[in-house]
Design a protein around this nucleic acid. Structure first.
Length: 951
RNA sequence: ACCGAUGUGGCGGAAUUGGUAGACGCGCUGGAUUCAAAAUCCAGUUUCUUCGGAAGUGGGGGUUCGAUUCCCCCCAUCGGUACCA
């Protein structure tokens, strides 16, 4: 009997369902282990072979952990709110809930096909009112809390109000947005509306003005993704930044704890570094510059207060609040033009244009706080509104960008640091001695930094200050398909919904277009918006709302009294292993950590960090094949040419058209091409090109005939190959279903793991799966030969035991470092050896089955059953290795001369160092290498190698 | 522009703390089997070579008896950059 994967998979699925093999309960007798995948957004395109990479790895690990005695929680769910479903709804009228559910069904079928051991009873869906009830509940908690800096934790706003009533703003040290101080009397005299405005500056969920990408022509707010070079990607309409009152989360209050928490995590250093850089803590000074002809001061933050005497001008972000006020009449027109142009650029574009300097003089001046000189104030792209204070003091002599700016606008450059003692030091390096700097002259840079900060404070100009690059998180979206805010506004005061009114459900709509004013479609549901208790918030929450806490919900997914029971939260605690893509390296992980810390502060959870160990899986890429289309038509006909022709005629005369990879021969290689059959398949697929000319070096295909040059028989139109994203738009998507159908789920799983290290990106190559398919056949043939069961009770020999136990050892070791690809190689080597040994011993083969069960769950379950077991192999113990089987009699040493291997030497295990040296010296093979040279020394590294050093 | 990662045969990749570069596969070549094909099995497969060897892990330098591994500089590709998910 051959291995029939379809039959076996079907049998296993029903066996697992019947025995509830993957059901997880709260079993305090066993240690817990929580393995989590980043949950997917259920897109209409379904899963391609890249998606399950991480899921397979986590599935293997979860099964391995279960077999080694842990109670393993391994759930799956859907990040179901999102923009694509809404856009689809706008285009087709299909309600996002319906399309999302349809997509989820497809995902589920695809996931089931691969044999994952999820406990589906715990599935979550962020768009389910039973789920987002608790997202809203947490939002209300954020709204009702502020952050106490002294106690380093969140506290109820009700306590803050009491403090204000008793002592005004001085009574509390809290994270807040506005510096204005007030007394208890002033607080008590405020109207409810005024008090609400003050509290907004303190709440962890609060409202503030934020900028959105407004597209007038489309009448909607666009995601950054949908804007290219100041124009909408769809339609190419102009886009501008527009201020809007929006909800935000005060994540900055947690900056220091988010930074500290990283130290305890078992994440890669690169991941931690990315998070640290994202938080961007820097210490320096806050300095105020008095405006020359206005009351206001400009606040700047600098990490280099020592350079203050080098300040010869200031630069504001174009969006800075003061720009309009201080610009002089003469400069107004130029300033307005510049501000408008800057508003059209994205932050990336503004930063990426580092080499071309632009800016505009406001006409206004500031007073230098130490020299009292008047210095000009400019605006420029390279200063960003949301970084620091949106204003900088420019030091052209020691900052590359300031220098370029000064050179362009012909501004004074005062040299204030003598770096002559450090010839290698570049601009901005903190070395040298201060010059031209009044009281700082002669000081080293480091001392000058301290001294300036001290002087700033004493003279009331500024003070020491810690700045974070991290910004408060914008939490509003002007969209339909997201969680409604549980907030009503009555008489200008924001009021949270009471818990018994939750969830605030999304009203059913059939028109998903935004309103003319750029408000969410919800604004059109007037009877939902207007209630006696106030006006509802019509914005919805962003994608990361539901995903910032879902890992807790899995612990107790059906609970309707709490987001999870205390019992479940205390048992499962945190995620032990989290696998997902690097694209979430900062955003999602940062928000989840923030929410977890907040829930910890308010006593809801016991842990401060949600993800103990993190693995980032790489992407599986596809091959993208392009053909060259001439930009100019020939006699009114489109013309495609071979890549060689395109190169010789100049690539700028051609556009690249992605073509379905199935039409291309040798796709992915340098020599990929389409033959006549390929051209005909292409024409069937894209009938608009049926009249086109397809020219290559061997001839041209046109209207069904191939006119050859010379005696060529077929077209060989070379295509351009590229490794890139696997995506619908490149027609290179490989669906796991097709692979599973043909090769079986076990083969698919093992092949995905075999491709390479889990953390690296690598291209998909369907052809390569043959190797794993052969391996599975060979493995099966150890149990069945020509349909006969061949396993018996014969005692294993030494070689068999050694092969088995070195495999067990290696698999344990590799799994502990998540090196799945080398596990597969190891299995191949084991099976090759057992084939060679003609193994039939049950003792050996039974362990092979248990060993491979996490990787090939179907095959293993089937064989386990045939070996006579009634319970699942996935609840069996994992094999342990015996060191005694692995002891070698002899060690083979490479004998090197100057580090280069020249010969080998077999030495009995345990031979002494000097004895090995003598044996090596006596080797006749070495004479030719040592002859005429002077032997300097011999290095013997036990169990490694011997090296002769000669001159 | 900034932050992070990656770079080894024709291809995917392997190589404990610095110690035999190319494990395990794909592909390719030759052979066995077959009427033939598929499948299977066996052998070979980094490049160059005067067949003695020599070179070789993106490029250039350095440390070391010895570097894919450690350090410095550079190049290329990928991910992220706060409203794609």
């Amino acid at each position: 009997m051959d291995f029939n994967h379809k039959q076996v998979e079907q049998w296993c699925k029903s066996f697992w369902a019947e025995h509830q093999t993957y059901k997880v309960t709260l079993d305090t007798d066993k240690p817990k282990y929580y393995v989590l995948d980043m949950f997917p957004y259920p897109s209409g395109a379904g899963l391609h072979v890249g998606h399950p990479l991480g899921y397979i790895a986590s599935d293997i690990y979860a099964r391995y952990k279960r077999q080694t005695g842990f109670n393993v929680l391994h759930p799956m769910g859907y990040d179901a709110f999102g923009l694509p479903a809404e856009q689809y709804a706008i285009q087709t009228g299909v309600h996002p809930a319906d399309s999302t559910d349809k997509n989820i069904k497809m995902y589920r079928a695809q996931l089931d096909n691969i044999g994952f051991n999820y406990d589906w009873d715990r599935q979550v869906k962020t768009s389910d009112p039973k789920y987002y009830k608790w997202t809203q509940w947490i939002f209300i908690k954020l709204f009702e809390h502020y952050y106490d800096i002294a106690d380093k934790k969140a506290k109820p706003v009700s306590e803050l109000i009491t403090l204000f009533e008793q002592g005004g703003s001085e009574a509390v040290k809290a994270a807040h947005a506005n510096e204005e101080a007030f007394s208890a009397e002033a607080w008590n005299a405020m109207t409810a509306h005024e008090q609400d405005a003050v509290l907004m500056n303190y709440r962890l969920a609060f409202r503030k003005v934020a900028y959105v990408n407004w597209c007038e022509a489309l009448g909607t707010v666009l995601a950054n993704d949908e804007v290219k070079d100041g124009f909408s990607e769809r339609g190419g309409h102009p886009v501008e930044k527009r201020p809007m009152m929006q909800w935000a989360l005060r994540i900055t209050a947690y900056a220091e704890r988010l930074l500290d928490g990283l130290n305890k995590l078992d994440w890669s250093e690169s991941m931690k570094t990315m998070q640290r850089n994202w938080i961007g803590k820097s210490t320096g000074a806050q300095v105020f510059f008095q405006l020359a002809d206005f009351e206001e001061k400009i606040e700047v933050f600098t990490t280099r207060p020592d350079t203050i005497f080098g300040v010869s001008f200031m630069v504001l972000a174009p969006e800075h609040d003061l720009v309009e006020k201080i610009s002089t009449i003469e400069q107004k027109e130029a300033i307005d033009k510049y501000v408008l142009a800057a508003g059209k650029k994205s932050e990336i574009e503004r930063m990426a244009e580092g080499k071309t300097v632009s800016g505009c003089f406001t006409g206004a001046h500031a007073i230098h706080p130490f020299t009292q000189k008047r210095i000009p104030i400019y605006i420029s792209d390279y200063v960003l509104k949301d970084y620091g204070t949106g204003a900088i003091m420019a030091v052209p002599c020691d900052d590359a960008r300031d220098k370029r700016f000064a050179e362009k606008f012909d501004l004074e450059i005062v040299n204030i640091i003598d770096k002559s003692a450090f010839p290698d030091a570049g601009i901005g390096d903190k070395v040298g001695v201060m010059i031209n700097s009044d009281f700082l002259n002669g000081m080293k840079v480091k001392d000058a930094i301290k001294e300036t900060a001290k002087q700033l404070y004493e003279r009331g100009i500024g003070k020491r200050y810690t700045n974070y690059r991290l910004r408060d998180a914008n939490f509003s979206r002007q969209r339909y398909w997201g969680e409604p805010f549980p907030i009503k506004t009555k008489d200008g005061v924001a009021v949270a919904e009471s818990q018994d009114k939750l969830p605030v459900e999304l009203p059913i709509l059939d028109d998903f277009k935004p309103t003319a004013e750029g408000k969410s479609p919800l604004a059109k549901v007037t009877d939902w918006v207007n209630t006696d208790a106030g006006i509802r918030e019509t914005d919805t929450m962003p994608g990361y709302a539901g995903s910032s806490w879902y890992f807790f919900r899995y612990m107790d997914a059906l609970n309707d009294k709490a987001f999870a029971s205390k019992e479940a939260l205390n048992y499962w605690k945190e995620v032990d292993l989290y696998i997902g893509g690097t694209e979430h390296a900062v955003g999602h992980l940062m928000y989840s950590r923030f929410w977890t810390k907040f829930l910890y502060d308010i006593g809801e959870v016991q842990i401060e960090e949600p993800f103990k160990k993190l693995i980032n899986q790489g992407m599986i890429q596809g091959v993208i094949e392009y053909i060259y289309l001439a930009k100019e038509k020939v006699n009114g006909k489109s013309k495609f040419v071979c890549s060689l022709i395109a190169e010789s005629q100049g690539l700028e005369n051609f556009s690249k058209l992605p073509i379905h990879v199935d039409f291309v021969e040798d796709y992915g290689s340098k020599d990929s091409y389409i033959n006549r059959a390929g051209i005909e398949a292409f024409i069937q697929w894209r009938p608009e090109y049926k009249d086109a000319i397809y020219e290559c070096g061997l001839g041209a295909y046109e209207m069904g005939t191939f006119k050859a040059k010379g005696n060529a028989k077929d077209s060989k139109l070379m295509t351009e190959s590229e490794v890139g994203k696997m995506s619908k738009r490149y027609f290179n998507v490989v669906n796991p279903d097709t692979i599973v159908e043909r090769y079986g789920a076990d083969c698919f799983r093992m092949y995905e793991m075999f491709l390479g290290p889990i953390e690296q990106s690598k291209p998909w190559d369907t052809q390569g799966i043959e190797g794993v398919a052969k391996f599975i056949k060979r493995l099966w043939s150890l149990f069945y030969t020509d349909g006969d069961w061949r396993v018996n009770d014969v005692e294993p020999n030494k070689e068999e035991l050694k092969a088995l136990h070195s495999a067990i050892k290696k698999i344990h070791k590799d799994l502990n470092v998540f090196s799945f690809n080398t596990c597969i190689s190891q299995f191949m080597m084991l099976v090759n050896e057992l084939k060679k040994q003609q193994t039939t011993s049950k003792i050996i083969l039974q362990d092979v089955v248990r060993l491979i069960a996490p990787f090939a769950p179907f095959l293993a379950e089937e064989l386990w059953n045939k070996l006579g077991h009634k319970t699942s192999v996935h609840h069996s113990d994992y094999p342990e290795f015996e060191e005694s089987y692995l002891v070698e009699d002899t060690v083979t040493y490479p004998i090197c001369v100057n580090g280069k291997k020249r010969t080998l030497l077999d030495v009995p295990n345990g031979t002494a160092k000097d004895e090995i040296e003598q044996m090596a010296k006596a080797l006749p093979d070495l004479d030719r290498w040592l002859e005429g040279k002077q032997l300097v020394k011999i290095i013997v590294v036990p169990n490694k190698m011997v090296n002769f050093v000669v001159k």
